[in-house]
Amino acid sequence: MAKGNVTINVERCKGCAFCVEFCPTKVLALSSAFNSKGYHSPRVVALEKCSGCDLCGMYCPDFAIFGWRIKEAAGQEAPDAG
């Protein structure tokens, strides 16, 4: 059971892959699809491993992804910075 999840803003992404590379539990991979600017954005390939640590969010230079913990989100709290 996943403890966390990520939200991806595909259109903001420029495909640098920082999030994919530095995700500690390897939740992400670059999508083969293009966004409207021609970049490959990340997609979730192993959601069950996501801890919601938000390291992807910290690395993202384009504010296009962030991670959040399910417990906190369910508690009506906005996810913090991890």
């Binding site: 903001r12 420029k14 495909g15 600017k37 910290m58 230079p61 384009d62 504010f63």
Partner: peptide
């Protein structure tokens, strides 16, 4: 957004 910085630029980080 999106900002003017290139793909892979670290300023946004």
């Amino acid at each position: 957004m999106p900002h003017i910085w290139c793909p892979g630029c670290g300023i946004g980080t």
